[in-house]
Amino acid sequence: MKKYLPYLSAMLVVLFISCKKQEEEKPKVIYDATSKVKTEVPVDTNQILIADLPVNMEGTNFLIHPIGVVSGKGRGFKSSGESGEGFTVSNYGEYQITGYLKNLMFQEMGKDTLYALTDKPILIETATYLKIFADKTKQQLMVYSLSDMDTNKDGKLDSSDIKSLYISTVSGQKFTKLSADFQELVDWKIIESKNLLYFRAIEDTNKNGEFDAEDKLQYHFVNLLDKDWKVQEYKPI
């Protein structure tokens, strides 16, 4: 038996590498005839929704309750974020909440009512308070990077799906999508002196399900003083 162990070990290594390669090569977008993606995902009965303790962005009159999941039955729990075991599903620092969050609940100071950011399935990775913008204009806004569609059609929303850019007031109202469907958010920034939010997204122009050098970057900006947050395209190159 011992003489077969090296061969068995080698086969297991090859199998692991093969599975890992297949996982890595899985397209980020899977298209059908209409290029529509079903956002509904099956309910995972092994997941339990919990809320972290609330966050108050400095200078605002609202509490934000991060909502995430812990999974596992029997002995203990494991969180859905990167924090490992325990009951914490988010992190907070420098006006930004991070994690893999199912939703955010908002509560005005002094009131008992809590309401959700959205009733649609999403997975929030970052929620950023525009503190500098608020200090200058007295408008309090939040910007989010999140997944809102099961673009790879694996039956769940996770970091393997396309990330989109959203905006809302600091109260969670007017939750609005800025980036286009099927375009992966690359980055965004605020030009404080002009009250503008600029962002880049990449479009899978060759429809191979991946975002690479052969695809096209799209450039956009939004006037944050615009009540409707109209997205405008620009062409720097």
Rank of each mutant, 00 (worst) to 15 (best):
I97F: 00
L146G: 03
G76Y: 02
A116N: 12
F199L: 06
T118C: 07
W229I: 12
A51Q: 13
D148N: 13
Y31R: 07
D148Q: 08
T128F: 04
I167E: 00
N46Q: 07
Q22K: 15
V70C: 02
G93R: 11
T137G: 08
T151W: 03
L15K: 06
R75N: 09
E203M: 04
G209A: 06
D204S: 04
K174F: 03
Y166R: 03
L63D: 03
Q139C: 08
G74K: 09
Y219S: 09
K28H: 04
G68M: 00
V70H: 01
E58F: 15
K156E: 04
E125N: 12
E58R: 14
L165G: 01
P42C: 05
N152E: 09
G74Q: 10
G72W: 02
M57D: 09
Q218C: 07
I162N: 00
N152P: 14
D181C: 12
P54Y: 02
G86S: 02
M1L: 15
E85A: 01
I50P: 11
D44F: 03
Y92E: 02
T128E: 04
L225K: 11
E184M: 04
L196P: 10
K138W: 13
M1N: 05
A201P: 10
N103G: 11
Y166V: 15
Y100F: 07
V143P: 11
L123K: 03
Q107S: 14
L101K: 08
T205K: 13
I237S: 11
P54G: 05
L165C: 05
F77D: 01
T205R: 11
L63G: 01
F62A: 08
K189S: 11
P42D: 03
E125H: 14
Q96F: 01
K38F: 12
L117S: 05
G209D: 01
L123A: 08
L63Q: 05
G155Y: 08
S145G: 07
G99F: 00
I162H: 00
D154N: 15
L225Q: 05
N103Y: 06
H220P: 13
T118A: 03
D154G: 06
L130D: 07
G110M: 11
P27T: 04
K78E: 01
L8A: 10
K189Q: 09
K138G: 12
E82F: 12
K136C: 06
V69F: 02
V170D: 07
P42H: 01
M105A: 10
Y198R: 14
T98R: 00
V37L: 06
F16V: 15
V43Q: 05
G172E: 06
P54N: 07
D44P: 13
V231E: 01
L197E: 07
S71M: 04
D148K: 14
Y100C: 02
S193L: 11
G81W: 01
E108N: 14
L49R: 10
I237F: 09
K227S: 10
Y129T: 10
A10N: 02
L196F: 14
S159Q: 08
V43A: 02
E233K: 15
Y115S: 13
S79W: 01
L117R: 12
F221N: 13
D181K: 11
S171A: 12
I122P: 05
P54H: 08
L104E: 01
E214T: 15
S71Q: 04
E233Y: 12
Y31D: 08
D212V: 14
